[in-house]
């Protein structure tokens, strides 16, 4: 389990994370949403010790991230994928890129090749292995960035705005892979986004504003207060927005949030 207990962090004197507490279990899909500058990326960097809290404690399977002697173990357990895959490539080919982390971990070549083949199959990028990363499409690049973390077999994976540069098709593809990582691969997933349409299948949602967690709960609990979300700079999925207006007019029930529920409610009237 990744656990944040009353964690605060500041860049210089500028406090960006304040008294944040939450946890992520293996197999759980947790989403963190918030406006630009709300502290989301800082929280991502705190999960595996890239940043250390000024106050409070972050632990991974019981080990505190400030335990320097176990820093490498923690980074092996928690993989981070960032927004722009172009900033993360170092290999001349995708295969070299995926092998880089494994070589640094002194993984035998045969074992490395097996892991690369298996992860490439899981993400559907077998056909890209001999291509230079820069020639891939945006969605393929992001899959390679995720694959380069997965080959290291982390128990947890933190994805920071990984869909923001993609077209709608690429977005859906990456989102379905991410859900599979939690649902079928048993990884603990922290998915960071400001696009609320992407949180719909989460087990748990954290809403962050000015460095604080201001809402924490299931998807419908979070979408229950549309006005509040908008007031802290968070967009509302159009179907949730429509449902909120129809609810205010007492034309659909309080349990209606999503497109299918609205259609059912309207068409059954």
């Amino acid at each position: 389990m990744i656990e944040f207990r009353d964690v605060s962090f500041a860049y210089d004197k500028h406090q960006v994370v304040e008294s944040v507490s939450f946890s992520i279990e293996k197999g759980e899909f947790v989403t963190l949403i918030g406006a630009n500058g709300s502290g989301k990326s800082t929280i991502a960097c705190l999960t595996n010790g890239l940043l250390l809290p000024f106050e409070g404690k972050v632990s991974v399977d019981g080990v505190s991230t400030d335990d320097i002697s176990l820093g490498r173990t923690i980074k092996r357990k928690v993989g981070l994928v960032f927004q722009n895959p172009d900033n993360q490539f170092i290999g001349m080919t995708v295969e070299e890129d995926l092998a880089f982390g494994l070589e640094n971990e002194n993984i035998e070549r045969d074992e490395a090749m097996v892991r690369i083949a298996s992860v490439a199959e899981l993400l559907g990028i077998e056909h890209c292995l001999s291509s230079p990363p820069y020639l891939l499409s945006g969605g393929e690049k992001q899959k390679v960035a995720i694959a380069s973390v997965l080959v290291l077999m982390p128990d947890y994976i933190v994805l920071d705005e990984v869909t923001s540069l993609l077209d709608p098709f690429g977005r859906k593809e990456i989102l379905s892979i991410v859900k599979d990582l939690a649902g079928n691969q048993g990884k603990g997933v922290l998915f960071i986004t400001h696009n609320t349409e992407e949180i719909v299948d989460s087990d748990d949602v954290l809403v962050v504003s000015n460095g604080k967690i201001v809402l924490h709960g299931g998807v419908k609990e979070v979408f229950a207060d549309v006005d509040f979300l908008q007031s802290i700079g968070i967009s509302i999925p159009p179907d949730v927005y429509v449902a909120s207006i129809l609810k205010k007019k007492h034309l659909v029930g309080e349990s209606v949030f999503f497109e299918k529920e609205i259609l059912d409610a309207i068409c059954l009237k």
Binding site: V242, I245, L246, K249, L251, L263, I266, C267
Partner: peptide
């Protein structure tokens, strides 16, 4: 998607206007 159950709905680019139209039709 609403055309099947509500019949003809005037075209609108604006989501709020569409919701008002739906509201008037089912209200």
């Amino acid at each position: 998607k609403l055309l099947d159950c509500l019949g003809e709905i005037p075209f609108s680019k604006n989501l709020e206007t569409l919701v008002d139209l739906i509201g008037a039709m089912i209200g």
